[in-house]
Every structure is written in C-alpha cells, then in structure tokens.
C-alpha cells in the first residue's frame, strides 16, 4: 500500500509542479511561440519578478497582490526591452537567431548581476501565513506553498489565451509573425503590436516569479535551471499553442515527480528533454501545434 501512497503523492506533486512550470513558460510561449523571438532571458525575468515580489512582501504585502502590482512595471519593462531589441536588430533588416540569442543571453547576465548586487547571492524566500501548512486529503498531503502557486497558472493562461483569441489586438499579435505586411495593410503598426505582445509576455514573468518564490527559496541565478525546461514546454506544446503548454507542463511535472520518487532526484532535470526528444520524433509540429 505504501507504494500507492507514493505514486499518488508523486502524481499530485507533479501536476502542481507542472502547473508552476506552465506559468514560467507562458511568457516564452508568447515571445518565442508566437513572435518567434528566442528570448532566453525569460526565466531570468521570472527571477527578477520573484525578487520584485520578495521586496514587496518585506513590507507585509501578500505575494499574489505583489505580483498584480508588478504587472504594469513589468509590462513597461518588456516594452522597453523590445524597443531596444528592435532598434538593435529588426530595423537593420531582420534579426538572425544567433544574434538574438546572444543579445538575450547577455541581457540575462546583466539582470542576474544587477539582482546579485541589489540582493546578494544568498537564497531569498517569502514568509506568508499559509506557507508551511499542508492540505491533507486521505493519503494525500498537498503543501499550500505548492497548491496556491499552481492555481495561478490556469488563471493566467486562460486570461492570456482569451485575450489572444477573442480580441482584435490579440488577433493582431497572433498574425504579426505570420504576415507582418498584413498588419501594415490593415493600418496597424507591426512594431507597436510586437512591443505590446512583448510587454504582456514580460508582465506574466512577475506572476511566474511570485509562483516560483512561493514554491521555494531562490537566488539571482535560479533562472538558468529553468531555461531548458521552459523551451521544451513551448516547443513540445507546438509553437503558439498557449493552452497546450499547460498540458505539456503538467506531463513534464508528473514525469519529473515520478522519476525523482522512484529513480533518483538528480535525473529529473533530464526528464523534460527526454520527453521533448520523444515527442518531436512522434509529432514534429508539437503536440498541439498545427502542421506547417
């Protein structure tokens, strides 16, 4: 019977962890999945979001409220980042992927160093009344520090997806990478549509940051461990499939939890890539992506 307990707990933990991964991947799903900009700085922006939330919680503000307060400043940060990216590359005739990767790699280094200078390199965590308590359901033990952040993902993803699929500015965002000229012909400025999308993507980083720092303590370089995983989620879901990324993230979360429970926790970082390789071998367009 003991093994059933472990199995159930591993699956539930996996679902919750996967949901947190989905929050982390959401912004990349917009910048890379929809705009095709390989923003490897996104996990570092999430860590910056976590430190923003950490700072506000020091003044007694709840981490989720802190994340909501962070939406506007992070949106503006994203707008500025895109304006810089576009001035450096796009206006000079198309950004090549390697150059973009280098820019965002450099950007994430700069953010990490700024965070280290500002906050020191030791682990930081948030202390809220419900963190440390657990919900007990029969054999299941669900810690609130995992349950509450996990609930953020479906809400944020649903909000972003409704915006993208039901509004005209959402349609413009989905259209811009496919046919930039169609936007100009429509009397819309493609550059400002992309800037807006990048702003939304960066705004989601502060919500993911709140989720991340509630799950466990983090340090300025914590984003690096997430890069592979979030790219795996976006690519495996199928570029541009935002709801699909939640499903994929949960599959990866469950697989990681099972691997760490039954095999060895040190193997779990490789799980996302194993699933990515297997998934792409079977369905190259991603599990939820349309064939191109």
């Amino acid at each position: 019977m003991l093994s059933i307990d472990i199995l159930l707990n591993a699956i539930v933990t996996g679902i919750l962890l996967g949901s947190v991964y989905a929050s982390l991947a959401l912004g990349l799903g917009i910048t890379f999945g929809i705009l095709h900009i390989p923003n490897i700085a996104h996990p570092t922006l999430v860590v910056a979001g976590a430190f923003f939330v950490y700072t506000l919680t020091q003044w007694g503000i709840d981490p989720i409220v802190a994340a909501v307060i962070g939406l506007v400043p992070f949106y503006l940060l994203g707008v500025v980042l895109y304006a810089f990216y576009s001035a450096v590359f796009e206006r000079k005739g198309g950004a090549n992927v390697l150059q973009s990767l280098t820019l965002f790699f450099g950007l994430s280094l700069v953010i990490e160093i700024l965070l280290s200078l500002g906050f020191g390199s030791e682990l930081k965590s948030v202390s809220v009344s419900y963190i440390g308590l657990s919900l007990k359901l029969g054999v299941l033990t669900v810690p609130y520090r995992l349950l509450i952040p996990a609930l953020l993902a479906p809400v944020t993803i649903a909000a972003v997806w409704l915006y993208l699929s039901r509004t005209n500015s959402g349609t413009a965002i989905r259209a811009v990478a496919h046919e930039e000229r169609a936007l100009s012909i429509a009397g819309l400025n493609p550059a400002s549509v992309k800037r807006h999308a990048f702003g939304i993507a960066t705004a989601t980083a502060v919500i993911a940051g709140a989720a991340l720092i509630m799950v466990g303590p983090i340090e300025p370089f914590a984003g690096r461990y997430q890069i592979g995983r979030v790219f795996a989620i976006v690519v495996l879901a199928g570029m541009g499939s935002i709801p699909g990324s939640l499903v994929i993230a949960i599959i990866i979360g469950i697989a990681e939890a099972l691997v760490s429970s039954y095999l060895n926790p040190s193997w779990s970082p490789g799980v996302a890539f194993a699933i990515l390789l297997l998934g792409l071998a079977l369905r190259p367009q991603g599990l939820f992506g349309a064939a191109r």
Binding site: N168, S169, T171, A172, R174, A175, H178, E179, R181, A182, L183, I185, A186, G187, L188, A290
Partner: peptide
Amino acid sequence: RLVPNISVEDNLKLAGS
C-alpha cells in the same frame, strides 16, 4: 498577404480594427 492561420472574419476584422 492574408494572415493564413486565422479565419476570413478575423482577417477582415483585423483590417477594420
């Protein structure tokens, strides 16, 4: 230069927005 992956109506609405 239509947007290939969205509907007829969305293509029209995009221009009308």
